[in-house]
Design a binder for these strands. Structure first.
Length: 193
DNA sequence: GAAAAGATTACCT
DNA sequence: GGTAATCTTTTCC
């Protein structure tokens, strides 16, 4: 847990626990959505530490009719206008979904994660992933690059194969290929793989 | 004010 | 494959 930082400045051969900081998120959303695959999200809650490896993401970009920021700031989406790395949590039906904000009110929906030693169904789907991590609507607006409760850690290796396809569950803007996943991961949402 | 819609999930036939 | 659950935000009259 406690990162072993070299005090001499010597290059570390293990980038095992490199936390993703502001500059990582302050880049084009699609690029961040792809590089988030394989990263680990760690949340410290009342029940201890929960961690999942991100295996499926969706990008929501500017001028995108499916994005919650499409019609400008509202009470619900205000955290989309926060700095890069802001967590945007919204409620849909009886569940919550978590996003990471990049730039210009663009964001990335975390659609699925894998957890070592656990069934793929545990964190398959944005609602189940957020539930497993213990995230709630009260976490909306947290800064994932600074807050102690919530941190992302860079992936150790690049995924073998990346899947790209249309986003899921949208009534508008669904045709754009803005969903990304790690091919072969069993926690990825059903359809084409 | 009232009504509709929704980046979902679970359970039905 | 279809639909109900469930509830907040947004949108419309």
């Amino acid at each position: 847990m406690t990162g072993t930082r070299s005090r001499t400045g010597a290059r570390s051969s293990e980038a095992a626990d490199r936390r993703l900081r502001r500059p990582f998120f302050a880049r084009p959303t699609v690029r961040v959505a792809r590089e988030l695959l394989g990263a680990r999200l760690r949340v410290t809650g009342p029940d201890g530490v929960r961690e999942a490896r991100i295996v499926e993401t969706e990008a929501y970009v500017r001028g995108d009719p499916a994005s919650h920021s499409y019609r400008g700031p509202t009470r619900r989406n205000r955290s989309m206008y926060g700095p890069p790395g802001t967590l945007y949590v919204f409620r849909i039906h009886q569940v919550v979904c978590a996003n990471l904000i990049t730039r210009r009110a663009e964001g990335i929906l975390l659609r699925a994660g894998s957890v070592d030693g656990q069934s793929p169904g545990l964190a398959r789907g944005p609602g189940r992933l957020a539930r497993y991590l213990g995230l709630s609507i009260r976490d909306d607006g947290l800064d994932a690059t600074r807050d102690a409760r919530l941190a992302l850690y860079a992936r150790r290796t690049r995924p073998r194969r990346l899947g790209v396809g249309p986003r899921i569950g949208l009534s508008r803007g669904a045709e754009r290929p803005l969903r990304f996943w790690i091919v072969g991961e069993r926690s990825v949402s059903p359809p084409r793989d």
